[in-house]
Deep mutational scan, measured.
Amino acid sequence: MASDGVVVEIGKVTGSVGTTVEIPVYFRGVPSKGIANCDFVFRYDPNVLEIIGIDPGDIIVDPNPTKSFDTAIYPDRKIIVFLFAEDSGTGAYAITKDGVFAKIRATVKSSAPGYITFDEVGGFADNDLVEQKVSFIDGGVNVGNATPTKGATPTNTATPTK
């Protein structure tokens, strides 16, 4: 695992066909100046998982989280898009600690492993708008004895992609 920078880890949970599971997305290594904004994309298989919603985690402190935390689910493109932009203008609602960034709610549709993997990152910046190093650890849903650990090695991303 990367020793510096922010680590975004997609949790690994267990479920069975027809059940709804909650998959946490963790941030670790949050910089001392916090995270003022970030955007990134995960990939998944809508034939295996139906993403039914995404909720902000406990490290989102904006009293009205829909102003700073936004997501979009595109089953036709097989992606989930995340956007966080601190909304106070003063840094008061920045992410300042490690913990759960988001909770992905999904219904298991198939007995195949439900991988959720890193696809791309736009950027991560602290309260001074300084770009942060970030790496990703894939996860998803274990169905029966299947284990979604494909790509469990962190993917280092030093520069934003478009």
Rank of each mutant, 00 (worst) to 15 (best):
S3I: 05
D4Q: 09
G5H: 05
G5A: 06
V6N: 11
V7N: 05
E9M: 02
E9S: 07
E9Q: 10
I10R: 00
V13M: 03
V13N: 07
T14V: 15
T14Q: 11
G15C: 04
S16N: 14
V17L: 07
T20C: 11
V21L: 14
I23R: 05
P24H: 03
P24Q: 06
P24R: 05
V25Q: 03
Y26C: 11
F27L: 07
F27H: 10
F27G: 10
R28Y: 15
R28G: 07
G29Q: 13
G29A: 15
G29N: 08
P31Y: 13
S32T: 10
S32N: 06
K33A: 11
K33T: 03
K33L: 07
C38Q: 01
D39N: 00
D45N: 09
D45E: 08
P46S: 06
P46W: 11
L49C: 04
I51C: 05
I51N: 09
G53F: 06
I54M: 03
D55L: 05
G57V: 03
G57C: 11
I60R: 15
V61H: 13
V61F: 10
D62W: 14
D62L: 14
P63E: 15
N64F: 05
P65K: 04
P65Q: 09
P65Y: 12
P65M: 07
P65N: 12
T66E: 05
T66D: 04
K67S: 10
S68N: 15
S68Q: 09
F69T: 09
F69S: 07
I73D: 03
I73V: 07
I73H: 09
P75Q: 05
P75R: 02
D76P: 06
D76A: 04
D76Y: 02
R77H: 04
I79D: 02
V81R: 00
V81I: 10
F82T: 01
L83A: 00
A85N: 00
A85S: 03
A85F: 15
S88Q: 09
S88P: 02
Y93C: 12
Y93A: 14
A94N: 02
A94M: 08
T96Q: 03
K97M: 05
D98G: 06
D98N: 05
D98V: 04
G99W: 09
G99N: 14
V100G: 05
V100T: 09
F101T: 08
F101I: 10
F101V: 09
A102P: 00
A102Y: 15
K103S: 10
K103F: 11
K103I: 11
K103D: 14
I104M: 15
I104C: 09
R105C: 07
A106N: 05
T107V: 12
T107G: 12
V108T: 11
V108H: 11
K109C: 08
K109P: 08
K109Y: 08
S111I: 06
S111P: 09
S111E: 10
S111M: 03
S111V: 03
G114W: 04
G114K: 09
G114S: 06
G114P: 06
Y115P: 08
Y115T: 09
Y115M: 03
T117E: 04
T117R: 08
F118C: 07
D119A: 12
D119I: 05
E120K: 01
V121A: 15
G123E: 00
F124V: 02
F124L: 02
A125E: 01
A125R: 00
A125F: 00
A125W: 00
D126C: 01
N127C: 02
D128A: 06
L129V: 06
L129D: 00
L129F: 15
V130S: 12
V130M: 15
E131S: 04
Q132G: 02
K133A: 05
K133V: 11
V134M: 02
V134H: 02
V134A: 08
S135Y: 12
S135A: 10
F136V: 04
F136W: 11
F136G: 13
F136C: 03
I137M: 08
D138R: 10
D138N: 10
D138P: 11
G139W: 10
G139E: 05
G139D: 06
G140H: 14
G140E: 06
N142F: 07
N142I: 14
N142S: 12
N142V: 08
V143W: 06
V143Y: 11
G144M: 10
G144F: 09
T149N: 13
K150A: 11
K150M: 04
G151V: 14
G151H: 07
G151C: 10
T153D: 12
P154H: 08
T157Y: 12
A158V: 10
T159Y: 14
